[in-house]
């Protein structure tokens, strides 16, 4: 992150940070292109590709048919033959339409070919509930991807991390998913103007603390930070860690924190059962068992599809209140 100190940071919304990251990749890599549904003429349904067609032209910013398998396959084939594609998967929920290309082709090609193939492909996708988009447009499916050897998975929560993750992913010569959050599009944050990388596989201690560790990623980072403030009243000095990258996972930073605080909780928006939090909890008990003063807690969505109704959805997605409540329960407060 030292690179970022070279220019003055401006405040940008998350969506503009995404656009700036993509734009700077296109400027720096002549074999990079962006392809996806509605990314060119419309500038993306979230506005994250705004202005790119005008600046880079239709050779490098390409509207595709609604064909997720075809789009990901195009990215895999183009990456294997010397391009550096940035592929947009409009909603993470659409993974089901292209899971063969992701799981059996993109993730495995290099290994199956004995290292003969290199796949510098970045996939941007949008996750998250909160906009009443119901069960097929609101999921957080990062666990699907983290289970696949060969993929790297990032889930940036802030404008700074969104831009830096996209640049790091595009400079990496492996397939990297950058999972963005649609509820955070307007979230402001400081973003340096020059290109910089958020290093892949390095967690960020967002809030230092001494006697409780929360690992939270995606939009839940912000909820966890609010919960941490709330817990101060009970003498809990929470350290909040954002792994940013889920695969490869920065185990050391989390374990070092738990060894110091002796109590840990993992928070994510995805369904709790078999969610990525289960992996983190397992790692903590394997590597820091003797340091633990309480069971490792997990907060996630209940075992249900995401509901539509404004009367239901807020009760489904974890928030600062439910996080703080679960923290108090697990800490016996």
């Amino acid at each position: 992150m030292a690179e970022a100190q070279t220019t003055e940071a401006r405040t940008l919304p998350y969506v503009a940070a995404i656009t700036e990251g993509i734009r700077q990749v296109l400027l720096e890599q002549e074999n990079a292109f962006v392809a996806g549904e509605d990314v060119a003429g419309a500038g993306g349904v979230y506005g994250s590709f705004k202005g790119l067609l005008a600046e880079f032209g239709e050779r490098r910013v390409i509207d595709t048919p609604i064909s997720e398998a075809g789009i990901i396959g195009l990215g895999v084939g183009a990456a294997a033959t010397g391009c550096r594609p940035i592929i947009d998967l409009m909603f993470m929920d659409f993974l089901g339409e292209c899971m063969d290309e992701v799981a059996n082709q993109m993730a495995k090609m290099r290994f199956m070919f004995g290292g003969a193939a290199q796949l510098p492909i970045t996939v941007l996708t949008m996750a998250g509930a909160g906009l009443n988009l119901a069960a097929q447009h609101s999921q957080s499916l990062e666990a699907w991807l983290c289970h696949l050897p060969g993929l790297k998975v990032m889930m940036p929560a802030t404008p700074y991390d969104a831009k830096g993750s996209i640049i790091a992913a595009a400079r990496d010569s492996n397939p990297v998913f950058v999972i963005l959050n649609k509820m955070s599009l307007g979230l402001p944050g400081e973003v340096p103007e020059d290109p910089y990388e958020v290093p892949i596989g390095v967690a960020n201690i967002v809030r230092p603390g001494t006697n409780f560790t929360i690992v939270a990623f995606g939009r839940m980072l912000h909820e966890a930070l609010t919960a941490a403030e709330d817990l101060k009243a009970d003498g809990i000095d929470t350290e909040v860690i954002d792994p940013i990258t889920l695969q490869p996972f920065d185990t050391d930073t989390v374990i070092d924190s738990v060894k110091k605080t002796h109590r840990a909780m993992i928070v994510h928006e995805a369904v709790r059962f078999a969610g990525f939090g289960a992996e983190i909890a397992a790692q903590i008990q394997e590597l820091a068992f003797d340091y633990l003063d309480a069971p490792v807690a997990r907060v996630g969505a209940p075992f249900s599809p995401v509901p539509f109704s404004p009367g239901l959805e807020p009760h489904y997605v974890p928030n600062a209140k439910t996080i703080a409540a679960e923290a108090r329960r697990t800490l016996g407060l």
Partner: peptide, 30 residues
């Protein structure tokens, strides 16, 4: 496979080759 010969792999999944070939053709045009 033989990437040096442009042979981008046999494939265990029926129908998986064409999207990858479209990507290679896209790269050629690009």
């Amino acid at each position: 496979c033989d990437m040096d010969l442009g042979m981008l792999g046999a494939n265990g999944i029926v129908g998986a080759g064409p999207p990858i070939a479209v990507g290679a053709a896209f790269a050629n045009k690009f």
